[in-house]
Amino acid sequence: MAIKVVPRYGKSFKDKLYLPAIAGGMKTTFKHFIKNLSDIDNLKTMQYPEVQPTDLNERYRGVHRLTKFDDGSEKCVACFMCATACPAECIFIEAEERFDEHNEKRPKEFKIDLLECVFCGYCVEACPCDAIRMDTGIFSFTGSKREDFVLDKKALMANERAKDLE
């Protein structure tokens, strides 16, 4: 089998200077700048956070929530399917026995670290009892310290489905 020699480009003095490539990039940038400056009313810029997006559909993945039964107890059965499916490993569950008519166990602790979460939705797909959802419509989540971004069971159950997504 013969060895194929691949020629390397960029050995000339002109290519080593990078000036032609920089000039080509600046030409493209200025072309877009002039086009946008001449038609400023057609710019699609949103003044976030003063103006919130209105084009969210039902498939949008916002902050998580835990669904509840009619009596207010959580639907989660602490099966760890969501934590197993999570590629970021940001879901932490501790199970306990349940003494009501719904299920055999429930989460004693259920925490999601939003700083580690990649909002992929695998936890929602993996849940066999539809206990976790990402339909809150909350996409702008702020906090002053790291602990503010770790949502526990109480906070997750307090999150409601976005009214405009229903």
Rank of each mutant, 00 (worst) to 15 (best):
Y9M: 10
T45W: 13
I138D: 13
A78P: 09
S73Q: 03
E50P: 06
L115V: 13
C117E: 02
C127S: 00
P128W: 06
A88R: 01
Y9A: 08
K16V: 07
L19E: 08
V5S: 04
I34V: 15
G143F: 10
R65D: 05
M26P: 03
E89N: 15
F149Q: 01
K154R: 03
A158P: 02
R61C: 13
G72D: 04
K105R: 05
S140V: 14
K153P: 01
S73F: 09
G25C: 09
K4E: 09
Y60G: 10
M157K: 00
V63H: 12
A162Q: 05
F99Q: 08
T136G: 03
E109R: 01
G62V: 08
T142L: 14
E104W: 08
V63C: 13
G143C: 04
K16S: 11
D164W: 13
R106Y: 11
D152Q: 00
D39L: 13
E97C: 00
S38L: 15
V63F: 15
L165K: 00
Y18P: 08
A126I: 06
T45F: 15
T29V: 13
R133I: 05
A95H: 02
G25H: 01
F139T: 13
T54P: 00
F99Y: 12
G72H: 07
S144E: 15
N159E: 05
F119W: 09
V5H: 09
P128A: 04
L56S: 10
E116M: 07
D70E: 11
L37D: 12
F13T: 12
V118S: 11
C120G: 01
N103P: 03
D152V: 04
E109K: 07
K4S: 06
A83Q: 03
